[in-house]
Design a protein around this nucleic acid. Structure first.
Lengths: 236, 236
DNA sequence: AGTGCTGTGTTACAAATCGTTACAAACTTT
DNA sequence: AAAGTTTGTAACGATTTGTAACACAGCACT
């Protein structure tokens, strides 16, 4: 369960973690959280420290009196005191916003393992290879190769951006969405980070970066990955 | 968690108990122990009675004021008074040095059972050989061999790091997590230990350490073991 | 068609992060 | 005790990422 007053975070975490095989409930505050807890068996709670009304820390403390459900606390970057307080409130782990969803996933898995709960099905979800144009993008091996077999060095940001695109072809993705999907970050006004990364990625994968065919610009809207993407599962 | 000023005991107990399926943090004195307790959920503390600075007995008494974490006290052979003092300080059990690690394990299990905590899954899970790329990693024999049968010398740290990776493939592991998983240590700010160990390990297992395919860097996130890992169980 | 405004692409450079080298300290083996 | 090995630290180099500024493209209005 994801407890955060920021609707965008709730929606995006639900989408991301659902794709990893988890079933996600969401709540905007402590009251809603307790209602969900009353109705559903919850294996782990991702709880924002800064909530309106009752804050995450006291919610966590109250929860600890009656429940052993593991808690991963979302804090504000750099607040070491909040981190320590989170643990003293009974949290099992913490992660600072802005965060990379993959790191959150790793922490969730670690916490569940620590509490002897079985992660969802397997890592098969990660054994996917996405094929487009003359490229093969291996998500679990974090590798891009051309059809002829030669590997292209992609930086962390470039790989994550390309993965976000390839997983959602033919959808216009705003800069805000791309930042969140690829980097787990929140956009600030007039932010040009994504434009820079798109330009760099185009230089690595487009035949003619000045006239891109894979990643196309939607003026005022963001970018769209227009390549036809096919999923090539790896047979075991 | 193992609290003992004797580094040898810390390392050996960590290795032995890790092989039994426990995750071990270590501390050299009470101050370090409290730091670890502030950051991590600890199920049981193995605490040496004779510590520099504040002794184990008073550490245990202080701990008992704020925590129910079970404590197994390490005492000196023949000190009946220490044994009695240990219990009066709140220890849950004691064992005299020099001790048989298997007896310590039995006492740990007994204490955990008494406090209704479930030990981790069976130790069968640890009689395992993990295969990836052209390598075979034997966890219980602590050995890495190539598919052609030649052995590679790995130092303790290198082996533990590789095991941590191979047991959690496709998951981004932060430096903090790696330090904990592989070394039972807590990261200090701007710590580069893991980076150094990763570099050394890459030189031993990667085909081209400058363009690593097994251990990949996630900038700002840590490292991820992207090799496909298969479990080859050892037939009993 | 011309003009002005807004949005995007690119370049240059600075900042941040990670990889490597060298060497010292700690540990292990002979 | 000496030699060998492992680990950690500091500093420098390499790579990645972000920012700012300028150039160019697209769109709306006249």
């Amino acid at each position: 369960m994801v407890v955060d007053d920021d609707r965008e975070i709730r929606v995006l975490l639900k989408q991301f973690l659902s794709r990893q095989g988890y079933r996600i409930s969401t709540a905007a505050d402590g009251e809603e959280m307790n209602k969900v807890l009353g109705d559903w068996q919850i294996d782990l709670i991702i709880l924002d420290l800064m909530l309106p009304g009752e804050d995450g820390l006291s919610i966590c403390r109250e929860l600890r009196k009656t429940s052993k459900t593991p808690v991963v606390m979302l804090t504000v970057m750099g607040e070491e005191n909040d981190r320590i307080k989170g643990f003293s409130g009974g949290a099992d782990d913490y992660i600072a916003k802005p965060f990379n969803p993959h790191e959150l996933l790793a922490r969730i898995k670690a916490v569940l393992r620590r509490t002897n709960m079985v992660p969802p099905a397997s890592q098969k979800a990660y054994d996917q290879v996405l094929c487009f144009d003359t490229w093969r993008l291996d998500i679990s091996e974090r590798r891009l190769t051309s059809n002829s077999g030669t590997m292209v060095d992609l930086s962390t940001a470039e790989f994550d951006l390309l993965a976000a695109f390839a997983e959602r072809p033919q959808q216009i993705l705003s800069r805000d969405q791309l930042l969140d999907l690829a980097r787990g970050m929140v956009e600030i006004p007039f932010d040009r980070k994504i434009d820079m990364q798109v330009s760099r990625l185009r230089h690595k994968i487009e035949e003619d970066p000045k006239h891109p065919t894979l990643i196309q610009t939607v003026r005022g809207g963001g970018y769209v990955f227009t390549a036809k993407v096919t999923l090539q599962g790896v047979v075991e």
